[in-house]
């Protein structure tokens, strides 16, 4: 028998664990994979650190600075173990690279700043935001008024606090507010690019019924697919739908997206 010797593993990765109390210091990072559990960090400077990943469990971060940090594959709160929420109070994430952390986890952000933060693909279904400030481009992010993906009840609550957040200087590129977020309780950008549509369920149902009557099968299927952009179940729990009109441009079939946008806007006229 011929024996072939190969190494299939890369170099072993190490974990740097943080627990206990850290205060008034610059974080000394020894590994890219950092796990923070049962820790209290006060005025700790994490700025410029590169995490791959940062995995946070129950922990408290008070006045910590994460500016210009990079969070790759990270989770800022528990993903379902049910061992408690992570609290970030008066923390700065300014100009941080937070693109590659889809699930934020069970976390609460109070008076935190996300100025110029690169935010992309956030699924903040179990996260709470209170009096936070956002600026810069936010792309394909979803904020939720209740922890709807928490089927096991690990968060122990039935709604996410979400109010007082200032998005006026942010570009909300395909950003979703779902499952009961009160848009009146936020400061939102004023631009012709965005629309707030009341009674979203009624509008979507009416437009869907109308599209379903289109005789051309391809057009009908394409239309229903486009409608899926606002047919998220989370919108059914919204009093108002936050609509990024730019989503309804540059479709495969010229003019179709614009037509559906007009139908949505005029559905209740």
């Amino acid at each position: 028998m011929e024996i072939r010797v190969t190494s299939r593993q890369g170099k072993p990765r190490q974990v740097q664990r943080v627990d206990g109390t850290l205060s008034d210091q610059k974080f000394v990072q020894t590994e890219s994979w950092v796990v923070v559990e049962h820790a209290t960090c006060e005025r700790v400077d994490f700025s410029g650190r590169k995490f791959d990943p940062l995995a946070v469990g129950p922990a408290r971060f008070m006045e910590c600075n994460f500016s210009r940090a990079a969070f790759r594959h990270s989770t800022l709160g528990d993903l379902g173990r049910g061992d408690g929420q992570a609290l970030y109070r008066d923390c700065r994430f300014d100009r941080a690279d937070m693109r590659a952390l889809p699930h934020i986890g069970n976390a609460r952000f109070e008076r935190c700043s996300f100025r110029g933060t690169r935010m992309e693909g956030w699924r903040a279904d179990r996260a709470e935001f209170i009096d936070c400030v956002f600026s810069g481009r936010m792309y394909d992010c979803r904020f939720a008024g209740r922890p709807w993906t928490d089927e096991a009840g690990a968060t122990g609550r039935d709604h996410n606090e979400f109010h007082g957040n200032d998005f006026r200087e942010a570009e909300l590129d395909a950003v979703m507010f779902v499952y009961g977020i009160d848009l009146d309780a936020q400061l939102l950008p004023e631009s012709d690019r965005y629309r707030r549509l009341d009674r979203p369920t009624e509008r979507v149902d009416r437009v869907r019924a109308e599209i379903a009557r289109w005789p051309d099968r391809d057009l009908r299927e394409s239309g229903l697919l486009i409608l899926r952009m606002v047919d998220h179940p989370g919108y059914r729990e919204q009093r108002e739908l936050w609509l990024d009109r730019r989503l309804f441009t540059d479709g495969q079939i010229p003019g179709l997206r614009e037509r559906i946008l007009a139908m949505l806007e005029q559905a209740l006229n």
Binding site: K11, P12, Q14, W33, L79, G80, R81, H103, A154
Partner: peptide
């Protein structure tokens, strides 16, 4: 990933960045 972290611990499993393979366990 969420299920694995729930089952095995957040200090045991992570998305991998080594060789582009999805999950790394125990760093190995």
């Amino acid at each position: 990933l969420a299920a694995l972290q729930h089952r095995l611990g957040r200090d045991f499993v992570t998305y991998s960045s080594n060789n582009g393979i999805d999950f790394t366990f125990g760093g190995i």
